[in-house]
Computed example of a mutant assay.
Amino acid sequence: MLVVIDMQARLLPHLDGAERLTARVGTLLRAANLLEVPVVVTEQNPQGLGGTAQALLGDVRLAKVIEKDTFDATLAPAFVDALPPAPATLWVAGAEAHVCVLLTVLGLLRLGYRVEFVADAVASRHVEDRAVALERARQDGARMTTVETAIFGWLGSFTHPRFRDVLALIK
Rank of each mutant, 00 (worst) to 15 (best):
V115S: 06
T149M: 15
E116M: 14
A131K: 12
E148F: 09
A123V: 02
T89S: 14
A97W: 00
L111R: 14
L90G: 05
F152Y: 15
V118S: 05
P87D: 09
P84N: 03
D81G: 05
V115W: 04
E128S: 10
D72Y: 05
L108M: 08
A78D: 15
V92K: 14
A95H: 08
Q139T: 13
L134G: 04
A82W: 03
Y113L: 01
H98K: 15
W91G: 03
Q139I: 08
A93Q: 13
V132C: 08
L109T: 03
R136E: 08
V122D: 01
A95K: 07
R136D: 01
L109A: 12
T145I: 06
L75H: 13
H126N: 08
A78E: 15
T149S: 11
A131D: 15
T89D: 13
L109M: 10
I151D: 10
E148R: 11
A131E: 15
A131Q: 14
V80Q: 02
A150L: 05
L83W: 11
I151C: 10
R130A: 02
E135Q: 15
A121M: 10
C100N: 00
G107F: 02
T146P: 13
V122R: 00
R138P: 01
Q139F: 13
A82V: 03
Q139N: 13
L108G: 01
V132M: 10
A121G: 08
Q139L: 15
R143Y: 07
P87K: 09
L109Q: 07
F117M: 07
L102E: 13
A78P: 11
A97R: 00
L90K: 11
R125S: 08
Y113I: 07
P85S: 06
V122G: 01
C100V: 00
L134W: 00
H126V: 06
G112C: 10
A82L: 03
L106C: 07
P87W: 13
R143F: 08
L90S: 05
R130I: 02
A82H: 05
D81R: 12
A97Y: 01
R136S: 07
